[in-house]
Design a protein around this nucleic acid. Structure first.
Length: 522
RNA sequence: GCCGCGGUAGUAUAGCCCGGCCCAGUAUGCGGGCCUUUCGAGCCCGUGACCCGGGUUCAAAUCCCGGCCGCGGCACCA
């Protein structure tokens, strides 16, 4: 080593290249495959099993989409399987929303996530009961009858004296819990960890507790069960039984991982590989499920629902006009690093725009418009392509002398001469609100660098209402579009020329059709 | 407060594990140009970052220590 280092750098390099070129070959074969994700640790092709495990208490948002998409992507990359599991074991404080089960699946399908198995935890209660009985027999779990005082004891590094009773006693008590001989708070099942563990939440954590389902019925299983597993217990059992090999989740689960390991150890199960990534924020959007819920409940007239385009829910982004591929692309570039990521709206919009541009037809729309009369000795026939990449697909627009057209007021104020897109070049007469035809050749406009502006003929103009989400505001603008808009229906995405991309949200009826569109981005 | 994890341009990310190919790559944004029947797209040029301070070393974004800042957890929630 010393010898080598005495040589000049260039010399070192030369020798390296000549004699050890094989070392340089594939030192780091970059991530490219699989959309740029780094390889998954401990992964074997064909054997990888991932899972996405949402709580069906509400629809999912962009932050939830991260583990879903990453799990999907890795399962695909290694030709493995992915599991969808609904974690609905708290009918009391995180009461599941009955519709959420289907809404989440709809969002996942839309995102292109493919899952091979599907489970609902509230339908697997017997499984958890059986495992905990085994753990009690093995002396890894116990029934705590100290009620509130156990919390205090554990805080001091002590524990409820029932902990030392023999397994048989605990088994009996567990049956009593199941038979509803105990009420909420009177008995819990704890996993024996270390009562002096530096992290107090890890000390003998609770595996099952009683929830009065007569009072808090579960939307799927009603009042059938009295004893419910906690998240940490149900997750450990299911991840093992379902053969999950890789768990991708946020760093808020780091401590949970440590708790869950006690179950694996007691049962002699091999733990999966855990990967924790940072939090994901979307700048300017509300992501918190509980906050969104509250906003909707408190202002039912101000918000359009959980899919309001101002929300960071998947449904909201979809309604806004964001494409699923854009969401996936963003999540893949963010990757699995442990640091937090704050995605800027500009970045998401740019990614989306790149995908939208080739598929969105172009339509002319004006807002803050002014009516102008065309002065022309003849009728003008415009042929305007729906999309610049496909010039053969055109609509025809005819404007004759004396016809009225609507233009953006700003264009009229700013330019003395301009070209109406596809039609001809005009001189602006502001006194008379007239447009005097100069010529029709594009060359004229080019050579004189005239602006080429959109316009809407008065005849057949379609009413449009544009909803513009801006933070917590939803601005509403009204304008007019050319008749070609009538060829499109709800959910179609368009570009209003010189205005921005929009998604058709609703088509109403009010003195003819009125199109409600949502402004996606510029 | 206690435990844990992070800090690369406006934003996101690569490189950090295995120190020299990095006066730091890419995308987006921003500025300029070209092209174009859109203020969109595309192409070209430019702009701009290793949190701070020590240490180890011939050599540090990369290793070590300290500080600062940010985030997560501390439930009979998930």
């Amino acid at each position: 080593m010393e010898d080598v280092n005495k040589l000049a750098l260039a010399e070192q390099k030369r020798i390296l290249e000549e004699e050890y070129s094989w070392l340089l070959q594939t030192p780091r074969k970059k991530t490219e495959e699989g959309g740029g994700l780094p390889p998954l640790p401990n992964a074997v092709e064909g054997k990888v099993v991932t899972r996405f495990a949402p709580n069906p208490d509400f629809v999912i948002h962009l932050g939830n989409a991260r583990p879903a998409i990453l799990s999907d992507e890795y399962a695909k990359m290694y030709k493995g399987r992915m599991i969808l599991r609904f974690e609905d074991t708290d009918p009391r404080t995180k009461k599941p929303m009955k519709e959420a089960y289907d809404l989440i699946k709809e969002d996942l399908r839309w995102l292109g996530v493919v899952w091979h198995e599907e489970y609902i935890q509230s339908l697997r209660m017997e499984v958890y009961y059986n495992i905990i009985k085994e753990m009690i027999k093995r002396g890894c779990a116990y029934i705590d009858l100290c009620k509130e005082s156990s919390r205090e004891l554990l805080r001091k590094g002590e524990y409820c004296q029932t902990r030392d009773n023999p397994p048989e006693w605990h088994l009996e008590q567990f049956e009593k819990m199941l038979n509803r001989e105990y009420y909420e708070g009177e008995a819990v099942v704890r996993i024996k960890t270390d009562p002096k563990h530096p992290n107090p939440s890890i000390r003998d954590w609770v595996a099952l507790r009683i929830i009065d389902t007569e009072k808090y019925p579960h939307p799927i299983v009603g009042s059938k069960y009295w004893v419910w597993p906690t998240y940490n217990f149900a997750v450990s059992v299911d991840d093992h039984l379902m053969g999950v090999t890789h768990i991708l989740r946020g760093k808020e689960h780091q401590v949970n991982t440590e708790k869950q390991l006690y179950v694996y150890k007691c049962m002699g199960w091999e733990p999966p590989t855990f990967i924790h990534f940072g939090r994901l924020k979307l700048e300017g959007f509300i992501m918190s499920k509980s906050y969104i819920r509250r906003l909707i409940e408190e202002n039912p007239d101000k918000f359009l629902g959980f899919d309001d385009p101002r929300f960071g829910t998947i449904a909201g982004l979809r309604r806004r006009g964001i494409l699923p591929e854009a969401i996936r692309e963003i999540i893949l570039t963010v990757g699995i690093k442990p640091g937090d990521a704050k995605i800027s709206w500009k970045n998401l919009a740019a990614t989306n725009r790149k995908l939208l541009d080739p598929i969105a037809d172009r339509i002319m729309y004006v807002e803050d418009y002014i009516k102008m009369t065309v002065k022309s000795p003849t009728c003008l026939h415009g042929r305007i392509p729906y999309h610049p990449d496909r010039p053969e697909r055109v609509r025809k627009i005819m404007v004759c002398g004396g016809d009225n057209v609507f233009l953006q007021k700003a264009d009229i104020e700013k330019y003395d001469e301009l070209r109406l897109l596809g039609l001809g070049n005009f001189r602006v007469n502001r006194e008379k609100n007239e447009l005097e035809l100069i010529s029709t050749e594009l060359e004229y406009a080019r050579s004189r660098k005239l602006p080429i502006v959109q316009f809407v003929p008065e005849r057949g103009a379609v009413n449009v209402k544009v909803l513009i989400p801006e933070g917590l505001e939803l601005k509403v603008k009204e304008g007019l579009a050319e008749p070609a808009l009538l060829e499109y229906s709800v959910d179609d995405r368009l570009q209003f020329m010189r205005y921005g991309f929009v998604r058709i949200d609703k088509i109403g009826e009010k003195n003819g059709k009125i199109y409600n569109v949502i402004y996606t981005h510029s």
